[in-house]
Measured scan of single mutants.
Amino acid sequence: MTGIVKWFNADKGFGFITPDDGSKDVFVHFSAIQNDGYKSLDEGQKVSFTIESGAKGPAAGNVTSL
């Protein structure tokens, strides 16, 4: 699925993605970002991701920028 990064705190390594389908915002951890180098996201960035079952509920996985 796709969405827009609502916010991401690079110091803490997590944030939230707002899915394009209008569903509830999804937690994203830096370890789910699939790019080389520094793993961070920018507010407003368009991303593709999967929904994984995290310890505290749904979380984004396999996050790639579009």
Rank of each mutant, 00 (worst) to 15 (best):
V5N: 01
E52S: 11
N62I: 09
F27S: 02
N62Q: 11
F8E: 01
D11H: 14
F14Y: 14
Q45H: 07
I4E: 06
G22A: 06
S48I: 12
G13M: 04
L66C: 09
S31D: 05
P19A: 04
S40V: 13
D42R: 14
G54L: 09
K46Y: 10
G37S: 09
P58H: 10
T2V: 09
I33P: 02
G3Q: 00
K46W: 11
V28P: 01
A10Q: 13
G22N: 08
A59W: 12
F8G: 01
I4T: 14
I51K: 08
A55L: 13
I17M: 02
F49C: 01
K39V: 07
V28N: 00
D36R: 10
A59D: 04
I4M: 09
F14G: 01
P19I: 05
T18N: 05
K6Q: 05
G54P: 04
N35V: 13
D36C: 15
A32I: 03
N35T: 14
I33H: 03
V63M: 02
N62A: 09
I17R: 00
A10E: 08
Q34Y: 09
E52Y: 13
V5D: 01
K24I: 10
D21W: 07
Q34A: 13
K6M: 04
S31P: 03
I33T: 03
Q45M: 14
D36M: 12
I17N: 00
S23E: 07
K24G: 11
G3T: 00
S65Q: 12
G61N: 13
V47G: 00
F49R: 00
D42H: 15
G37Q: 10
P19S: 04
L41V: 05
Y38S: 10
F16M: 08
K56D: 08
V26T: 03
E43L: 13
D36S: 12
G57W: 08
F30R: 14
I17V: 04
S23L: 06
A55I: 13
G15I: 01
N62K: 11
K46F: 09
L41M: 05
H29Q: 04
T50F: 10
G61V: 15
E43D: 10
E52L: 13
G37D: 09
L66Y: 07
D20C: 15
F49K: 00
V28S: 01
G15K: 00
I17G: 00
T18L: 12
V26S: 01
Y38A: 12
G57L: 06
G57D: 04
V47I: 05
N9L: 07
V47A: 02
V26C: 05
A10V: 12
V63R: 01
S53W: 15
P58R: 15
G61W: 11
D36H: 11
K12R: 12
A32H: 07
G13S: 03
K6L: 05
L66H: 09
N9H: 09
G37P: 09
G3E: 00
D25Q: 06
T50P: 01
P19Y: 06
S65V: 15
G54Q: 12
A10N: 11
E43V: 15
P58T: 11
A10L: 10
I51Q: 05
G22K: 07
G61K: 15
K12L: 14
D11C: 15
Q45P: 01
G22Q: 07
S40E: 07
I17E: 00
Y38C: 15
F16S: 03
W7D: 02
A59I: 14
I17H: 00
L41R: 01
V63D: 02
K24V: 12
D20H: 08
I4Y: 11
D25C: 06
S31T: 13
D21V: 07
V47W: 01
G57N: 07
L66M: 13
D21T: 07
V47E: 00
I33M: 05
T2C: 08
A32Q: 11
V47L: 03
S48H: 13
K6D: 03
F14H: 05
S48Y: 13
S65H: 12
S31Q: 07
G37M: 09
F49I: 02
A60N: 01
D42C: 15
G57M: 06
E43A: 15
Q45L: 07
G61D: 07
G15H: 00
G3Y: 01
D36G: 12
G22I: 03
F30Y: 14
A32Y: 04
N62V: 08
K24C: 12
T50G: 04
T64R: 14
A10Y: 13
G3P: 01
T64L: 13
A59V: 14
K6T: 05
I51L: 12
G3L: 01
S48D: 04
K24E: 12
D11L: 15
A55V: 13
Y38G: 10
Y38V: 12
S53V: 14
A60F: 02
I51V: 11
D21R: 05
G15Q: 00
K24N: 12
I33W: 06
L66A: 09
I17L: 07
G13H: 04
K6F: 04
V5Y: 00
K24R: 13
A60G: 04
P58E: 08
K46G: 06
I17A: 01
T2W: 06
V47N: 00
I51T: 06
K12D: 04
I51S: 05
I51P: 05
F27K: 02
L66I: 14
A32V: 10
E43S: 15
G13T: 02
H29V: 03
F27G: 01
I33V: 10
T18W: 07
Q34W: 07
F8Y: 11
F8P: 01
F16G: 02
D20S: 10
S31V: 05
V63K: 01
T50H: 09
K39T: 08
P58Q: 10
L41S: 01
H29M: 04
G3F: 01
S23K: 07
